Computed example of a mutant assay.
Amino acid sequence: MLGDAFLLLHTDLPREGPGSDECTREALRRLRPLLPPSPRVLDLGCGPGRQTLVLAKELGTPIIAVDSHEPFLKRLEAEAAAQGLGHLVRTRRADFAALEDAPGSVDLIWSEGAIYVLGWGAGLRRWHPVLREGGLLAASEATWLSDSPPSEAADFWREAYPRMGTIASNSATAREAGFEVLDTFVLPAPAWWDEYYHPLEARMASLRERARGDADLATAIAETEREIELYTRYGTSYGYVFYLLRARGQGGR
């Protein structure tokens, strides 16, 4: 199955999407004055958890890392233990579309490159109820940076992520979902290359021989190569944007 091939291709990458420790710290720096001293934090769709570890180090409070893929959680647990952060990282295997946390019980929801699974608006509406009044949400999301992107880029993302919006449209959706938009910033190009595309290129190189006898893996590699080539050519027209939001109301709307 093609899904299995993509999981194989993405095994042992430092990140499952664009991002960097510096971007995580910058988003947290902008929100930190609004957090209580010991916030209750959920990291939704944590993947292998690079950002989880940064949050644990910076906040010094337990981070609840949620993902449905057990190998990611096991890897995060091992890395947290190796860094002396095991007491601050609590993993939870769960579907982040159906959180069981009590309404109004969370101070900060963090999610890097994962909300697209639900869709921007649907994800915000599902997650809003667990935030306390004034609770914060930081999420990075694939976003159009141009109102008139090149046709090749538009065609690719229309198929890959047809719900991708602009900063303006995503901000409007966030307000409709019960949030105040505090700030946004675009992830710089190194956040795509250094910890995502370059490691992904090395992973593809290591699997090329295997792909000769695996049609699904060959397809996964070809599609990934196309994505990387597209970003190389048109990366100024789209990118990942960090949205920093504050919930209005308590236990929902």
Results as ranks from 00 to 15, higher is better:
residue 39 P to I: 01
residue 109 I to C: 11
residue 145 L to C: 11
residue 127 W to D: 11
residue 105 S to A: 15
residue 115 I to R: 08
residue 40 R to I: 10
residue 74 K to Y: 01
residue 121 G to Q: 12
residue 35 L to E: 01
residue 46 C to L: 09
residue 114 A to D: 06
residue 126 R to E: 07
residue 66 V to W: 08
residue 117 V to R: 05
residue 44 L to R: 10
residue 74 K to D: 13
residue 114 A to R: 10
residue 128 H to D: 00
residue 108 L to D: 03
residue 109 I to G: 03
residue 142 A to P: 15
residue 156 F to D: 02
residue 44 L to Q: 11
residue 65 A to Y: 13
residue 74 K to W: 07
residue 100 E to H: 12
residue 53 L to F: 06
residue 53 L to Y: 10
residue 24 T to G: 09
residue 149 P to T: 00
residue 103 P to N: 09
residue 38 S to P: 00
residue 67 D to A: 06
residue 54 V to W: 04
residue 24 T to L: 11
residue 112 E to M: 05
residue 73 L to V: 09
residue 160 A to Q: 13
residue 97 A to K: 13
residue 125 R to V: 04
residue 117 V to A: 12
residue 117 V to L: 05
residue 124 L to N: 08
residue 146 S to V: 01
residue 122 A to L: 02
residue 75 R to M: 02
residue 151 S to M: 04
residue 45 G to Q: 11
residue 27 A to H: 03
residue 26 E to Q: 14
residue 144 W to T: 12
residue 97 A to E: 14
residue 65 A to V: 11
residue 75 R to P: 00
residue 43 D to H: 12
residue 96 F to A: 13
residue 44 L to T: 05
residue 76 L to Q: 14
residue 55 L to F: 04
residue 28 L to A: 03
residue 144 W to F: 09
residue 59 L to H: 02
residue 107 D to M: 08
residue 49 G to Q: 10
residue 69 H to Q: 04
residue 47 G to T: 05
residue 68 S to D: 05
residue 36 P to Q: 03
residue 72 F to A: 11
residue 124 L to I: 07
residue 94 A to P: 07
residue 32 R to M: 03
residue 24 T to I: 08
residue 74 K to H: 13
residue 65 A to N: 14
residue 115 I to F: 03
residue 63 I to W: 10
residue 79 E to N: 12
